[in-house]
């Protein structure tokens, strides 16, 4: 499954300033591993020691928060767009 990942500015130092990268993965968990494979070191920014996504990070698959889907087990299909967005304040 080829998916497109939108990388937030703070993580672009891992991706040679690329704002978007294409990767193969069938789930969000697999995608996180694939990112680490391509950009060593990025995983420890995204996840804590237990492998859980950090609580101030939001991950969306085609604009839907994965917490409304199947969290890190959310399946990915060809052409899906995944965005990683640090939490922001509101109003």
């Amino acid at each position: 499954m080829a998916v497109q990942v939108l990388i937030p500015t703070p993580l672009q130092k891992f991706t040679n300033d690329e704002a978007s990268v294409d990767l193969e993965a069938a789930s969000v968990d697999e995608l996180l591993q694939a990112m680490e494979g391509r950009f060593p070191g990025i995983l420890s920014r995204l996840c804590d020691e237990s492998g859980k996504l950090r609580r101030f990070l939001n991950v969306y698959v085609n604009s839907e928060d994965i917490r409304f889907l199947n969290h890190q087990a959310t399946a990915l299909a060809d052409g899906d767009e995944v965005s990683i967005v640090p939490a922001v304040a509101g109003g």
Binding site: L6, T9, A19, S63, V85, G90
Partner: peptide
Amino acid sequence: YDQVNRLCSEVANTYGWGFVNINLR
């Protein structure tokens, strides 16, 4: 709003604007 926010985070990544509740938070 949460969708607006996500969009703006992406805009903030590419346009060099001062987003009061994002990069100026």
